[in-house]
């Protein structure tokens, strides 16, 4: 059984339908990417899964239906979500951001993990007491990822980490992400526009177009198939 099983997910804003019965799954520890152009519904997919917006269909976690739960309830079930635009809490310090990330865990565990993340990201350690809002985009993305891991999630939903970052910084973020996920053993459901980077990172991929999955397969398959690349990925 998959860790996450999404089927027939439908969702819209007002009268505008965005998702038309979406199916996807993520296995324990698996790295999966959803590719698609701007506006295909990638962000909406993640928001629907984590309960930020109302949706219909089915979202199962370990076979348990979780659709309709609030984001904080989903987090206690093991799903963390780094939203588009990173969602760092700008009026809180770096350390407080990380502490909020561990809100549902005991303070001893939080303190322990805090030190670990400061070792992994020395730059965050240097800026420990600085307000998150005053950091650079790349640093904020690192913070957002570290914060999500503070809850020790089984599944991380990651929304376009490359957004607004310079190519070199994006590369660095992905490298760190790969190290961290390996270390933590979490599954990741990533949505990205940057197909090249994402296919290097992930094991399996879906291509989303206008609210429906049009292609799915292993990352290497997609990387090898020129027709798909031309038609959907603009490569």
């Amino acid at each position: 059984m998959s860790l996450l099983e999404v089927s027939g997910l439908r969702c819209g804003y007002g009268i505008v339908e965005v998702l038309f019965g979406l199916d996807l799954s993520v296995a324990e520890g698996e790295l999966v990417v959803v590719l698609g152009a701007n506006g295909a519904g990638k962000t909406t997919t993640l928001r629907a899964i984590s309960g930020m917006i109302p949706a219909s269909g089915s979202v199962r976690l370990d076979g348990t239906e979780v659709l309709g739960r609030r984001p904080d309830q989903l987090l206690s079930a093991g799903v963390a979500h780094v939203p588009q635009g990173r969602g760092t809490i700008s009026a809180l310090s770096v350390e407080d951001n990380l502490r909020v990330g561990g809100y549902q865990r005991s303070s001893a565990e939080v303190t322990e993990d805090l030190e670990m993340w400061f070792e992994v990201f020395p730059r965050l350690s240097e800026r420990r007491t600085q307000l998150a809002g005053s950091m650079s985009g790349g640093e904020q993305q690192m913070l957002a990822i570290a914060r999500a891991f503070m809850s020790r999630p089984r599944l991380l939903l990651l929304d376009e980490p490359s957004l607004g970052l310079a190519p070199l910084v994006t590369r660095e973020v992905f490298d760190r992400l790969r190290d961290v996920t390996q270390q933590m053993g979490s599954a990741v459901l990533l949505v990205e526009q940057n197909a090249n980077l994402a296919l290097d990172f992930a094991a399996r991929a879906y291509v989303l177009e206008a609210g429906s999955i049009v292609v799915s397969g292993s990352a290497s398959e997609l990387q090898g198939d020129e027709a798909i690349q031309k038609a959907y990925l603009g490569l």
């Binding site: 984590s50 930020m52 609030r70 984001p71 904080d72 309830q73 987090l75 206690s76 963390a80 979500h81 780094v82 939203p83 969602g87 760092t88 809490i89 700008s90 009026a91 809180l92 407080d96 502490r99 909020v100 990330g101 809100y103 549902q104 914060r147 809850s151």
Partner: peptide, 20 residues
Amino acid sequence: LAMRAVASNSESAGLCGVPV
């Protein structure tokens, strides 16, 4: 901490597991 987080960005606070 949770109150400050909610006041600054309630959506993110919710995603961090704070029962807003």
